[in-house]
Amino acid sequence: MSEQFEPTIIGFTCNWCSYRAADLAGTARLKYPPNIRLIRLMCSGRLDPTFVMKAFANGADGVMITGCHPGECHYLEQNYKALRRYQLLRRTLADFGIEPERIKLVWASASEGVKFAAETTKLVEEVRALGPLDWPNYESNEYSRLQAEPVKEAA
């Protein structure tokens, strides 16, 4: 295995569209980095922001949230609610000192296996560039860093 950093991504998928897009990517034998691990929800509207924080807290470096395209929600409009939560979540993450780029919202219909694979690849590369988040060890890391060097004004 190469020496480069391999991020771990948790992906939340909707049972009706993006999970099927992931299935389709597989059936079509498309290749994308094995760094992503999927969780099936019934709808992107089920996504509790806690899930994302939990993923980071347990060592994920990035999170992908996927759902049906606006207007195509299996449950009529719940993906819009996911969109709202996503926007708030990005802000909250920034407040936590986490790069908002570590989470990404992707609309993928059941037929968009290609898009699913491409977006996954892109996110893995982006998170790779950001480097490890390593939140489980964050406190100790941060503590030792602070001890080693005096606090500077944020750039």
Partner: peptide
């Protein structure tokens, strides 16, 4: 259930086993 699943998926990312990917 979902929180447990997240923990399970990331089992390899915490502790001494911390890996590879």
């Amino acid at each position: 259930q979902i929180l447990a699943q997240i923990e399970g998926l990331l089992l390899l990312n915490v502790g001494p086993e911390k890996v590879k990917a």
